[in-house]
Design a protein around this nucleic acid. Structure first.
Lengths: 206, 206
DNA sequence: TAGATTGTTAATCGATTAACAATC
DNA sequence: TAGATTGTTAATCGATTAACAATC
């Protein structure tokens, strides 16, 4: 119903989508209260979030699961396929390449690159590891828009620069370092030691 | 200086710590402005965040890098070692076991378990993969407080239940599912397809 | 109609940041 | 003293949630 969707709402939409996908009977309706419990949030929050997507509920009845799913996918832009390159073919890069969760949401890993000559040519989940030297060419040839950085921290900044240079517009950075880039590239960072740090804090202080 | 530190500040502390660790000359001082640029936040934010830790800066000069590091570690509870168990020895579990970033912050992976009999006994980074059947015993024997779930989504809830039952108080969930647990266990969830979903949204709508 | 649940308002809460006095 | 930078205040901004009229 609105033009702009708040950050916090966007961040919760994938979570709702997960919960809705887990609901087997896709013909059924589901109330904000049910979804709130499944997603671990407040039910007023659920309704408020959905109000940004438009009116997809029926008063006294609930939300149509199938319709809601498709609306969330539409809003997030998950109605098409995104070619993705994974940079770094270590354990983490391999884990990501094999990760089936991406497929269901339209993320299609079309290339895995590494600098290690010993790895180049090795198979990973139906792909062959390619040379990181060809990164720019690969991005351009295959129209890649999303890059995932799964290299050591020391290599991450230069990889990000090369990805941006080659035309990638979105980067998911899994290396434990903060990247400096131009505003044209949108970066999200996931750092597991940060997550454990937060865990440690809560262990000690509630 | 204060009793309670805001959630948002806690979440930024590990990031500051990363930036401070990257600064080579640990004798030096560093201004809130410098750190703000490195961490990608506002300098007023930096000063405000640090005000919760107490007064560790000097007006006209900046913050003592070494002192600040040690104070952040203290507040986050990173002055001791935490034994960690990783559940699931697939690519992701193996990546985590090998991940050197944990060591530096005091997270010590002391066990990796899996249900796959073919994997049990295999070496990963100096450890041997153990049977998931022994999970509860392992947790108790080794005083494990933190569990990392790197299993498929289908197994995650039952693993979480068993971890909680065995006495683990903090869980990092990497499986793409939302866990229901008692309030005694603190859970953080990292879901890579969610991150890509957010990336997709920003690609399409700015 | 009676019961249920949405969609929205308005209040509250928490987080961000500009601005500046304090002070090294 | 002059210049720099903190620590804190107060204003602003955004996010959460209780409450309830609308309505199925």
């Amino acid at each position: 119903m609105k033009g702009t969707i708040p950050q916090a709402t966007v961040a919760r939409l994938p979570r709702y989508l997960h919960c809705l996908t887990d609901m087997v009977d896709s013909e059924a309706k589901c109330s904000s209260e049910q979804l709130a419990i499944a997603a671990g949030v407040n039910s007023a929050q659920v309704r408020k979030d959905f109000s940004y997507l438009g009116s997809y509920g029926t008063r006294g009845v609930g939300y149509d699961i199938r319709e809601l799913r498709s609306q969330i996918r539409k809003v997030l832009g998950l109605t098409r396929t995104y070619p993705v390159v994974i940079v770094g073919a270590g354990n983490l890069g391999s884990a990501l390449t094999n990760y089936k969760g991406f497929d269901a949401w339209g993320f299609d890993v079309v290339a895995v690159v590494d600098i290690d000559n010993d790895k180049i040519g090795d198979p990973v989940d139906g792909l062959k590891i390619e040379s990181a030297n060809r990164l720019a060419d690969i991005v351009k040839e295959r129209g890649i828009e999303i890059g995932i950085i799964a290299t050591p921290a020391s290599a991450a900044q230069s990889v990000a620069n090369r990805l941006a240079e080659a035309g990638v517009t979105s980067i998911l950075n899994l290396a434990p370092t903060i990247l400096q880039t131009s505003d044209e590239v949108f970066i999200r960072r996931v750092d597991l030691s940060t997550e454990l740090g937060i865990l440690a804090f809560h262990r000690n202080s509630g």
